[in-house]
Design a protein around this nucleic acid. Sequence first.
DNA 1: TTGTAGGCGTTATCAG
DNA 2: CTGATAACGCCTACAA
Lengths: 348, 348
Amino acid sequence: MDRQNEGSLNRPTLKDVAREANVSLKTASRVLNDERYVRPQVRSRVKDAITRLGYRSNDLARTLKLGTTRTIGLVIADISNPFYASCAQGVARVARQRGYSVVLSASDEGLQAEREYVELLVRQRIAGLLLVPAAGDHSYLESERSRGLPIVALDRPLTGLDSDCVLVENEAGARAMTEHLIAHGRRRIALLSGSLDIYTYAMRLQGYRLAMAAAGIPEMIRMIDPTVEGAAAATVELMSEPEPPDSICCVNNRVTVGVLGALGRLGISVPDDLAVIGFDDFELSDVVRPRLTMVRQPSIDLGMSAATLLIDRIEGLESGPPRAVTLPVDVMIRDSCGPHEGFGGVPA
Amino acid sequence: MDRQNEGSLNRPTLKDVAREANVSLKTASRVLNDERYVRPQVRSRVKDAITRLGYRSNDLARTLKLGTTRTIGLVIADISNPFYASCAQGVARVARQRGYSVVLSASDEGLQAEREYVELLVRQRIAGLLLVPAAGDHSYLESERSRGLPIVALDRPLTGLDSDCVLVENEAGARAMTEHLIAHGRRRIALLSGSLDIYTYAMRLQGYRLAMAAAGIPEMIRMIDPTVEGAAAATVELMSEPEPPDSICCVNNRVTVGVLGALGRLGISVPDDLAVIGFDDFELSDVVRPRLTMVRQPSIDLGMSAATLLIDRIEGLESGPPRAVTLPVDVMIRDSCGPHEGFGGVPA
DNA sequence: TTGTAGGCGTTATCAG
DNA sequence: CTGATAACGCCTACAA
């Protein structure tokens, strides 16, 4: 009845180790941190005590003293979206390499949830913050930033605050995507986009418009809820219009999935009846029939770059004004826009 | 040059708040924790000071004193695998609801990496540990468990340690999967499995064997590296054997993707030339042509159940001997095993 | 209703 | 080389 006193686990402290090894607290600490000036004999005595007791140092106490953690906070929109999952993977990889832990939170695109998570993370004294900002004003981060908390925005820049950010070439990618369809002779090219409050969608829409304008083709833009369900519903509507499109640009991977699902149910064949191209490639796009032509984003690199930049800031390896890193995208030409006609690997 | 002194951020402490509000430390603390016995006037004075200073309480110090964090450690195999991503999503959802943070780590199925992560997490004094155990002996967790650290295994039980675990009906699911093929008249049914050191694969193989034995059909088991690449390579080999299979059971979603990719490249048509069924459904299985018949695992629920159980343990709401929770799976009958013939929703 | 003293587990300082 | 002693920021007694 006295074992397992729920809640506070009963762990030995460094003091216990010191007592067990018959040395002072400080000496035990020295051994723990591999400091010099400890007789080998004493050192091994302490080490023995550590293993004998199953001692695990308390990072809470340590970082309280040191004033700095080795944890980075990551706030993304949605873990189950493979794009963000890949980003997180990239972040985790770099974090591990450089000895940091990652606390993960998903905002579900909500500014309120995001703020709550950031608050929580700050309380945990994260060494730096990595986030995919939700739509809306982020000046609330100003106070943290000015206190010296390194912040790197991932996938989208922060609005209302100048900070480091790691992005991809959204506009160029969307333009290339649209031009690809145009080159295939498509003219009624629909774009299914999410709210322009979200940077990536705004930029991609811009790229689409540029391509359409350059070709002198009228735009066909539908603002939708950029989810699988939203895209499916929009597709059904779109295809029942008097003059339906001959091709669809999907603004993200969720939309691509939704469009494809709806087209399948409608019995519309790709690319014969309709061409489809998506922004943000996913694993199965090369496995599915027809293979999907997609604008590929280097999602893992995105996470890795962001984490690298953040940790460089944390460690003072990078200083100076906020940096904006932009990673290239490329069009993976496959079959969903029709037969290839000697298109090269169109860069964004 | 004195701002931004890299590293240690310059944050106000509760003492600063107290000074600013002209009260004692304790009073400030009382306000912070919404304790009674503070004059409203004083309370608001302190609150003002808090916002004026942009004070954020230091959870490190607080939990050091309190002896318990509200953080749970999650170690999964691979974030970019949608199955684990879903599990993580379920965990995150419950954690958020109940006021916990999640520290995420990916072991890549390596026991060594897993151990390192667990060590790190323990140092951070996580309140509980959730892990998808890598293959191998987990008695190393014994010491933590005996110290009272709640541990819940996710997706697979721990070997060498009796602990809570949340699993799915692997054997029954695999058996149902195989029987489905048999009912479709398939006889040369190959199973592509990963190492039996991993519990889920062992159980699924067992389910397959049971079904095959019951039908009196010879087994056709291939042990492979259960990744996209491994499965693709195995498929190519398999199909070039003198007597290739007429159907393939895929042991997880990676394998399903690999098999499908290889079949596509080989020009083998599903389900006409070959039937395919997979364990662990994924989003696109319903969008792809042919639509894929799959054994669906409740991945989000898996994460949610595990997190719930863990937090219940942490909070002492659940006590008693280790519990094993098993969640049902179900066969999602679609098109990749041939035309439906009045199969009901075959439960596992 | 408010304040004072002491300690959580570490590490840093500075004598031995 | 080693060891007292004082922080780190907060909270829990226990007074006032």
